[in-house]
Design a protein around this nucleic acid. Structure first.
Lengths: 251, 251
DNA sequence: CGCGTGCTTGATGATGCTCAATACCTGTGG
DNA sequence: CCACAGGTATTGAGCATCATCAAGCACGCG
């Protein structure tokens, strides 16, 4: 049994979608693949998303080089995706939370180009590729949704590139936290209190910083009264102040 | 009249696709939207790509905030895409050359999120969104291709994030040049002699560096005998050496 | 309790940004 | 034809930021 304080902060198993259900029953309907689709279209989508799969913390859902056999939607839990250069250098390219799609980047070549690692015990919906290719009716709506999902990824990547290219360490971290808070809020959690599911090292890799710099930035924010840090528990005390930091006020 | 040396180096108007032709006649067939499709499918795709549009150098094809009315495929010329944060900070997020798609990132919301600026007099094929939405038969193949194109963008973005997050200035520039040379080679040009269509500032923005640092890196490469620089003419003398630089040999 | 992993904090140095001056290329107008 | 202006590129000097190396601390787990 685990003794986390789950009263204030989001825990690993909330929201808790029903197991074995189709999309129509899923709490994440509005944020996931069927976002914006009319109710009648749901069963068609749901037919493609028949199975779920559990991924224990630390295990890979797929890794770079694997053949693309299915796309995935995160149901519960938290993932990171990592690219690896040939020389072994790696970098986290994104964090995925419930409602996010995984595997889209493999559509280009049919092989995955990133590792997808569960940061905690997670569940994913499996969108098998075989029926997907033949789904004539549902395919249309589905492909549109996939495109939308990929577009979202592209736009998020662009935002990250903006971070990486032009911002200082603290600006990057502030932007990261605000983005994370906003995404969590969209999922129904508090926008002010968050539990980081990833290590400082992951965050640093994502933001192009070392873990020490991330840690220092956290400490600096706390000293400024912008937030409160206790390990992975973060309380955003002054989101507006963080926005000022992102805008370059902290130079 | 212009007096560029166009004997060695690719010029703005090569390759020269036929105007007014469908995809079946286009020289870029193999690199563009129809990549990998069988010949019979070409007319269906071509039907969606009926019009072309000229974009003079420096002019925007679309800008952030514009409603998405069409997707575009670069036919001739060269583009850059720029994001802009609310505080006015901007960054180049990509460079597009013949065969590349433009506008995909707008699929998420229906509004463009980046500016697309022609770096030289260019032509694009217009993929109007209205018929696209109704194209039942062709739609399937087309959407698959769009997905593939977007996936390509995502993967390229990831590579750039890897650059931005983990590489030194020279490593970034070397990687950028090798990538550019490879993309140009795929289009049938020399992989060793290239003419940059963008300014040092653009490159710097793309790579998360200042224009001065880019310039210094060029000079350093030249001093090492890795390449020859004359303004925007670059001759790669030692691609293998550049690859060593990317791998971190220049530290 | 003791170990390991992850986090914090400090000191030092290199990388690359800022500011600034100069040179170059192109197109314009005298 | 030449001078000039504007944008672009190169180069230099000083300094801020962040990576690196190193040491200790907190937490969770066996």
């Amino acid at each position: 049994m685990q003794f986390h304080d789950t009263s204030l902060l989001p825990s690993a198993d909330t929201p808790r979608p029903r197991p074995q259900s189709g999309c129509a029953d899923c709490r994440l309907r509005a944020q996931c693949l069927p976002a914006g689709l009319p109710a009648p279209a749901l069963p068609a989508i749901g037919a493609l998303v028949s199975t779920q799969r559990a991924v224990p913390r630390g295990q890979r859902l797929f890794q770079a080089g694997d053949a693309l056999t299915a796309l995935y939607a995160v149901r519960t839990g938290f993932f990171k995706t990592c690219t690896a250069a040939e020389d072994g250098r790696t970098q986290v390219t994104g964090f995925q939370m419930p409602g996010d799609l995984l595997g889209l980047a493999a559509l280009e070549t049919g092989r995955h180009t990133v590792d997808a690692v569960a940061l905690e015990d997670s569940q994913v919906c499996v969108i098998s590729c075989a029926p997907l290719a033949q789904a004539s009716e549902a395919g249309h709506a589905l492909q549109r949704q996939l495109l939308r999902g990929m577009s979202r990824i592209v736009n998020r990547d662009h935002a990250v590139m903006l971070l990486l290219g032009g911002m200082r360490a603290r600006e990057r971290l502030a932007a990261f936290l605000l983005d994370l808070a906003q995404r969590l809020q969209a999922l129904g959690w508090s926008g002010a209190a968050l539990v980081l599911r990833m290590t400082r090292e992951d965050i640093g890799s994502y933001l192009g910083l070392t873990l020490e710099t991330v840690s220092r930035a956290f400490s600096a924010f706390q000293a400024q009264g912008l937030l409160e840090v206790r390990q992975r528990e973060i309380h955003l005390l002054d989101p507006q102040g963080l926005r000022r930091v992102v805008a370059g006020a902290g130079r």
